[in-house]
Measured scan of single mutants.
Amino acid sequence: MKVMIRKTATGHSAYVAKKDLEELIVEMENPALWGGKVTLANGWQLELPAMAADTPLPITVEARKL
């Protein structure tokens, strides 16, 4: 699914347009965010693609819901 990742004042957030859902990312498998699992505030887990740590945000990526 397409997910937009952006930086907020409190960390990172994910927006899933198909579900009209925006949630804070509360847990990251990798400190650089990319190439691992993230957990959203509502409990969803997404697998993000591997990208460079300095990838500019906001960005829309293809993520997989676990």
Rank of each mutant, 00 (worst) to 15 (best):
residue 62 E to R: 12
residue 54 D to F: 04
residue 3 V to N: 00
residue 47 E to T: 09
residue 45 Q to P: 00
residue 2 K to R: 13
residue 45 Q to C: 12
residue 45 Q to D: 06
residue 66 L to F: 10
residue 57 L to F: 12
residue 19 K to W: 15
residue 22 E to C: 13
residue 9 A to Y: 08
residue 65 K to F: 15
residue 33 L to N: 05
residue 14 A to Q: 02
residue 62 E to M: 14
residue 27 E to G: 10
residue 37 K to T: 13
residue 10 T to I: 12
residue 9 A to C: 10
residue 48 L to I: 06
residue 28 M to A: 13
residue 31 P to R: 08
residue 59 I to D: 03
residue 27 E to D: 12
residue 14 A to E: 01
residue 24 L to E: 14
residue 15 Y to D: 03
residue 64 R to N: 09
residue 20 D to T: 07
residue 44 W to G: 01
residue 41 A to Y: 05
residue 21 L to H: 08
residue 51 M to T: 02
residue 58 P to W: 07
residue 25 I to W: 02
residue 34 W to R: 04
residue 58 P to V: 04
residue 38 V to Y: 02
residue 49 P to G: 06
residue 23 E to R: 06
residue 43 G to Q: 02
residue 56 P to W: 07
residue 48 L to H: 00
residue 17 A to D: 10
residue 23 E to P: 00
residue 60 T to P: 02
residue 14 A to K: 02
residue 8 T to M: 07
residue 39 T to N: 03
residue 17 A to P: 14
residue 33 L to F: 07
residue 4 M to Q: 14
residue 16 V to T: 04
residue 16 V to D: 09
residue 35 G to R: 02
residue 6 R to Q: 10
residue 18 K to R: 12
residue 36 G to M: 04
residue 60 T to W: 15
residue 49 P to E: 05
residue 28 M to S: 13
residue 30 N to Y: 11
residue 28 M to C: 12
residue 18 K to I: 15
residue 13 S to R: 08
residue 62 E to I: 15
residue 4 M to P: 01
residue 3 V to P: 01
residue 16 V to Q: 03
residue 53 A to F: 11
residue 17 A to H: 14
residue 25 I to C: 01
residue 21 L to I: 14
residue 65 K to I: 15
residue 43 G to K: 01
residue 54 D to L: 07
residue 65 K to L: 15
residue 59 I to V: 13
residue 63 A to R: 00
residue 59 I to E: 02
residue 3 V to Y: 00
residue 61 V to I: 11
residue 40 L to A: 01
residue 25 I to K: 00
residue 43 G to F: 05
residue 34 W to V: 05
residue 35 G to T: 03
residue 8 T to V: 11
residue 12 H to C: 08
residue 28 M to V: 09
residue 36 G to F: 05
residue 27 E to T: 10
residue 36 G to A: 07
residue 66 L to G: 04
residue 37 K to Y: 12
residue 62 E to D: 11
residue 46 L to W: 01
residue 63 A to E: 03
residue 44 W to Q: 04
residue 10 T to S: 13
residue 41 A to E: 08
residue 11 G to E: 02
residue 6 R to T: 10
residue 11 G to V: 03
residue 3 V to F: 02
residue 35 G to V: 02
residue 17 A to G: 10
residue 30 N to G: 06
residue 45 Q to A: 08
residue 33 L to R: 03
residue 44 W to N: 01
residue 14 A to S: 02
